[in-house]
């Protein structure tokens, strides 16, 4: 019963260790691998928070696909080491400190995890839980909300992913077929 806080604590400590390791490292390859590990720890954290579907996504995208994409990008670039400057850069430091202070200030306003009186639980969540299964006949409420109640949002998400893919293909994809290039050159 009391194992959850221990696991949470361990995962969070390791997250901090990973973050500082990334800061200290200068080799890009090692950094990429540690980023992947960071995502894997996040996936574990999501799992502890009873969100296995988010954990799936984090494990597959965060530590799988995006690590591989970063490795491919590294193999295309020539520099393998970050340039370290000894001088402290004050303006970025100020921005980071201000953002961090604002985020820490925001923590005390967050509702406790699983708090039924939290504003987020007051609106429509009640109805989803009380009548979701009768209305959709689907035992997994997350799927019912995502695909049915919020179907229009999910359609938007799919179109966003599709558009992102088209954008990347236009930017990085292979040049046109030979016939097309010749057509372009003739006029």
């Amino acid at each position: 019963m009391a194992i959850d806080p221990v696991i949470n604590f361990m995962l969070l400590v390791f997250l901090v260790v990973m973050a500082f390791t990334i800061l200290r490292l200068s080799g890009m390859l090692a950094m990429t691998i540690i980023f992947g590990l960071y995502s894997l720890l996040m996936a574990g954290l999501f799992m502890v928070m009873d969100a296995p579907d988010v954990a799936f996504t984090e494990a597959a995208v965060g530590s799988g696909v995006s690590t591989v994409l970063m490795l491919v990008t590294l193999s295309l670039t020539k520099t393998r080491h970050e340039r370290h400057t000894r001088k402290i850069q004050w303006r970025p430091l100020l921005v980071v400190l201000l953002t961090g202070a604002a985020l820490i200030y925001g923590i005390h306003d967050i509702a406790n995890m699983g708090d039924t009186d939290a504003p987020a639980q007051q609106h429509v969540a009640d109805r989803y839980i009380s009548s979701g299964q009768q209305e959709t006949g689907v035992p997994n409420l997350v799927t019912a909300v995502l695909a049915s109640y919020r179907g229009f949002d999910t359609l938007g998400e799919v179109v966003v992913i599709f558009t992102a893919g088209i954008g990347i293909m236009l930017l990085l994809g292979r040049p046109c077929k030979k016939g097309r290039v010749e057509d372009d050159q003739t006029p």
Partner: peptide
């Protein structure tokens, strides 16, 4: 099914686009 088809295919296409650059 529609979501799965789009997401899986787009992820692979993004990887193809990156890998083909090299």
């Amino acid at each position: 099914l529609g979501v799965g088809m789009t997401v899986g295919a787009i992820m692979l296409l993004i990887f193809y686009a990156f890998a083909n650059r090299g």
